[in-house]
């Protein structure tokens, strides 16, 4: 495997990183865990002149609780998320999603920020983060901006990150949801990309749902929210037929394609099944 030549930068602060990126423009690519970027370079899909490594920016590795929110540094590794006591206590569904991702070696390197910025529809963390209504902070030499994560993706591997920007943190707001989960269908039990996946969060009140968010992965060119299916659930009495109908609506709203992991027809069926099952799990088991 051939990694093309590049110049390497390892800034000591976010400000320095932003300055380097501002200067290099489109000649530079940000390197976090490297599990996507280096692979793309090896297979010839990416050949940046400069790599700007974030490895010294330890302040971006923190996972912390603040009034009204939980903040996850963009450099937190998948295994950091998996093992975070804080996340396990508040939103266990997120550590469990991180646990489905890859081998231990990759989970030690790969970062939540990278998983988001890479922008692929099969990413495992964006669906559950969107279900939890997360927003992201983007920092550049010109300042900072935040946006809801669900607005970040707009095409396969297409995101709204601007040249010179670094994704620095992810915020999960305190919420009324009573449960959430991420169900992924892979073709083996470990180290498998999603053939299809569904993340949900639910706010159960008595016999009905007050609020619900349903997010699909590997079901469209981007990770998508299926609001039609969500609306079908709100205010109605929870029963298996209701959840099955939501699954059906989610499948209708999905637009999977044929891939080496499964035909479009099969994947649409999986969306239906996973949505139904994820709703049941989140309703019955809380954040799990």
């Amino acid at each position: 495997m051939y990694v093309p030549d590049f110049e390497y930068h390892a800034p000591k602060s976010v400000a320095e990183a932003c300055a380097i990126l501002a200067e290099l423009g489109d000649r530079a690519t940000v390197l976090a865990g490297g599990t996507d970027v280096l692979h793309k370079m090896k297979v010839g899909k990416l050949a940046p002149e400069h790599l700007v490594s974030l490895k010294h920016l330890d302040e971006l590795r923190d996972i912390r609780e603040e009034p009204g929110r939980v903040v996850i540094g963009a450099l937190a590794s998948h295994n950091q998320i998996y093992t975070s006591r804080l996340l396990q206590r508040r939103y266990l569904s997120l550590p469990m999603a991180a646990h489905t991702m890859a081998s231990n070696q990759i989970c030690n390197l790969g970062t939540v920020g990278g998983n988001i910025v890479n922008g692929v529809p099969s990413a495992d963390l964006p669906p559950i983060l969107i279900a939890l209504n997360a927003s992201i902070r983007l920092t550049s030499a010109h300042g900072e901006r935040t946006m809801p994560l669900e607005d970040f993706f707009h095409g396969s591997a297409q995101t709204r990150i601007e040249q010179g920007e670094i994704l620095t943190e992810i915020e999960i707001p305190d919420q009324a949801s009573t449960g959430s989960t991420y169900l992924k269908f892979g073709l083996r039990r470990s180290g498998a990309l999603a053939v299809a996946a569904a993340a949900v969060s639910v706010q159960v009140a008595g016999e009905t749902l007050h609020g619900v968010r349903i997010v699909l992965a590997s079901a469209a060119p981007t990770v998508i929210r299926v609001t039609g299916a969500e609306r079908s659930l709100v205010g109605r009495r929870i029963d298996d037929d209701l959840l099955a109908e939501a699954g059906y609506l989610a499948a209708q709203a999905s637009s999977p394609r044929d891939s080496i992991r499964g035909s479009a027809e099969y994947r649409r069926n999986l969306v239906e099944v996973l949505t139904k099952r994820a709703l049941r799990k989140a309703i019955d088991e809380g954040h799990a």
């Binding site: 083996r188 039990r189 470990s190 180290g191 498998a192 990309l193 080496i260 992991r261």
Partner: peptide, 16 residues
């Protein structure tokens, strides 16, 4: 070959 690698050529793992 579309899957000349170990992500999509699915050898089973210990947990399988």
């Amino acid at each position: 070959i579309k899957n000349a690698e170990l992500a999509n050529y699915r050898l089973l793992t210990a947990v399988d």
